[in-house]
């Protein structure tokens, strides 16, 4: 009855998300994303459109597929079905003879250049200084002259409040500082879409604030963002849209106000009440 390996236990919901073909004018347009790990469907038909300057916060219980969804958007994970367009261009796949085929690594890399990704565990390069962590991709990937890239990197570090840590290695930085460097590193590629995968979950509570502050500033600067987080304070003040994931589908979505006060689903209400108490 409660077999987690079968697709039959997916909840039937009234929500279908955007319908029709993917919208090439949106910053992100995803249709029918399906992803299975060893027979378990982690994503079971997820569709979403995100317009320029929109901030979408994704929530949902652990195992609901929200992190996998985010990782699929820049092809850190492949998808089994569906389609993802970023700025009207397909991510990870190209037309084959009768179906989509996976792109070659070089082409996938090119598509990722303008999609920023911030990891839960920062993943800074430990052998490089904070400044070089930020400057390395513009130099190596975009071919920006070294001096220019370092100047930009210094400005980005200043923007996240870490100008004085430019020469520090990640290992001497606190978690909050590391995550801010990681945000600066993603910004250095001048992304049109920023994906945040639980950016504050690995932080000590007293460091959450500094990272959230930086993220709010990015919202004010008009960056298009999809944020997986349980920081309801951020969602309430910064999100245009709150998306509730459950068992591999979008259970419902709406303004933070609507979902937090008057959700359509009892599960949404219960879940948000639970995490808001902790957040």
């Amino acid at each position: 009855m409660n077999d987690p390996h079968g697709p039959h236990d997916q909840p039937t919901t009234g929500y279908t998300g955007p319908t029709g073909p993917a919208d090439p004018t949106a910053v992100l347009s995803a249709r029918g994303m399906v992803k299975a790990f060893g027979g378990v469907r982690v994503l079971n038909g997820v569709s979403m459109d995100v317009r320029a300057r929109e901030v979408v916060v994704v929530v949902g219980p652990s195992g609901s597929g929200k992190t996998t969804f985010l990782r699929c958007l820049n092809h850190l994970e492949s998808i089994d079905e569906g389609e993802i367009l970023v700025h009207g261009r397909r991510v990870g796949y190209k037309d084959g003879l009768d179906r989509l085929v996976e792109e070659r690594p070089r082409a996938i890399a090119a598509r990722r250049r303008n999609i920023g990704f911030v990891f839960q565990r920062f993943n800074l390069f430990p052998h490089l200084s904070a400044l070089d962590n930020v400057a390395v991709a513009p130099v190596k990937v975009l071919g920006v002259p070294k001096a220019e890239a370092r100047e930009q990197a210094q400005a980005l570090l200043a923007r996240v409040g870490l100008a004085h840590k430019a020469s520090s290695r990640p290992s001497v930085l606190s978690g909050g500082q590391q995550q801010r460097v990681a945000i600066a590193r993603a910004l250095a590629m001048k992304p049109e879409l920023m994906l945040f995968d639980e950016p504050t979950s690995a932080l000590d509570p007293e460091m959450v604030g500094e990272v959230v502050t930086v993220m709010k500033e990015l919202v004010e600067d008009g960056l298009t963002m999809i944020v997986v987080t349980h920081e309801m304070g951020f969602a309430r003040s910064a999100a245009d849209r709150l998306v509730m994931f459950d068992q591999g589908v979008i259970l419902e979505e709406g303004t933070p106000e609507k979902l937090m006060t008057d959700p359509d689903h009892q599960r949404t209400r219960a879940f948000l009440r639970r995490i808001d108490g902790h957040g």
Partner: peptide, 12 residues
């Protein structure tokens, strides 16, 4: 995570 961070930055 190191590989993923590099990939996410568009590195081949």
């Amino acid at each position: 995570g190191q590989t993923e961070a590099a990939q996410a930055l568009g590195m081949t």
